[in-house]
Design a protein around this nucleic acid. Structure first.
Lengths: 229, 229
DNA sequence: CATGTGCGGAATGTTGACATTCGGACATCA
DNA sequence: TGATGTCCGAATGTCAACATTCCGCACATG
């Protein structure tokens, strides 16, 4: 990292819509609006102290992220978490991660590798310190964010953002119910990805990235199946 | 297809925003707003006879499709077509087509195969009849739409829609400049995909789908390179 | 009893007015 | 002369009122 590595990064204003979207997203992740809950524009506008127009913009953004779904004159509600949904999201994610790994494999530099290394270390120490599942998840997502950034493909990043929130929501419910499983493989799998990335073994990295996602899918589906019985 | 194959499809209302989005998209494809052009909300609102709010919604939708890009208080403009953009879009598309082909390979039924067969036949006759490039393109896209539909993955479909308009715009400029190249491989490549799909050879189908996209990318890049010199 | 019909309330969809921001033209000063 | 500071017009961002649509429920009807 240079002296101003990311100190001079962004100074852009974003508008109330985006701000509102962040608040509502956090509320969903925080359990204020559980899966299936209805999001009423007037309520949100009153609570956030912005106009309905801005709330509308926020909900449109969240719909793009797949976190909510709305229908004509029928309101907006938080998505549900069926096994079919998990399969869909993780199938797309696997395809994207494969591409991200392949592209990143050709373009990584020392800076990105160092950042990834730091993240894995953070995971390790957070794990030993008995950190909350949501903190581990944030590091997990940050790791993959970094890889997508290294891929240097704006459209790929957009596609990732269209599933990222759903992945986060899914994993959050998983961790909330049984995180021993998650903790057991977190550091190991990411360390493997990092090693392959560093070694420049792109073909095996692509396979590992895909398998990493499918592994998460299988564990999630298993947990959901256990919950329904 | 059943008797009401697609006669009972959709009866949903969509709102002025979506309607406006369709008009503006067509205008972009029609060359009214060439790449790089500025889209002013007041102009569009006046032209379409809707409020600026609806235009805003339409522009947000088009931004999600990647056709336009907007910045805070700085307006909205049609995307440009650099070689880097083409590489990005087609890299993502290749990853998506690979997944779509794999999923579709497991789920296609006779109805879908028949529909695809019809589309290839239409391509063939349109080609012999000397149809316009844009018509051939519509059939091309329809073919791939059908495959994505057969994959039965809503998130995958959304991801496809996030690049489809850009693909269409790119191909449109290509066909407008030199369509002999395009015409020469159109039917052949799609017939090959259909054959592999029918044969149930999913691994080779996935490879072919990826190669089909990369072939299109190479031809496009070559054309852009020739145009700049 | 099942089906169709017509309110009524509550939510979303739409609009035009008002506030804010951006970028460039012009003036100012070393 | 070139860099900096300051206005101004034009566009976008935000808002609150108005219009439209949906859904549930009661009631009529066969």
């Amino acid at each position: 990292m240079t002296a101003f590595g990311n100190a001079l990064r962004k100074a852009e204003r974003r508008g109330l819509g985006q701000e509102a979207a962040d608040r509502i997203r956090d509320a969903i992740f925080g359990g204020v609006f559980p899966p299936g809950a209805v999001l009423r524009e007037v309520e949100l506008a009153a609570g956030l102290e912005v106009s309905r127009g801005s709330v509308r913009e926020a909900l449109a953004q969240l719909e793009q992220e797949g976190l909510v779904r709305s229908a004509w004159h029928r309101g907006t509600r938080v998505i549900d978490l069926s096994v079919a949904d998990v399969d869909e999201v993780y199938a797309v994610r696997a395809a994207l991660e494969r591409l991200a790994a392949t592209s990143a494999g050709r373009r990584v530099d020392g800076e990105a590798l160092a950042a990834l290394e730091d993240l894995v270390s953070e995971m390790d120490s957070a794990l030993r310190a008995g950190a909350a599942g949501s903190d581990l998840l944030a590091l997990d997502i940050a790791f993959h964010d970094r890889i997508y950034a290294a891929a240097g493909n704006r459209r790929l990043l957009d596609a990732w953002h269209a599933v990222r929130s759903q992945v986060y929501l899914f994993q959050l419910t998983r961790v909330a119910r049984d995180d021993a499983d998650y903790r057991s493989i977190l550091v190991e799998e990411h360390r493997e990805l990092l090693a392959l990335l560093r070694a420049g073994d792109t073909p095996r990295l692509a396979e590992a990235a895909e398998e990493h996602v499918d592994s998460a899918r299988r564990r999630l589906v298993r947990m959901l199946a256990a919950a329904e019985s």
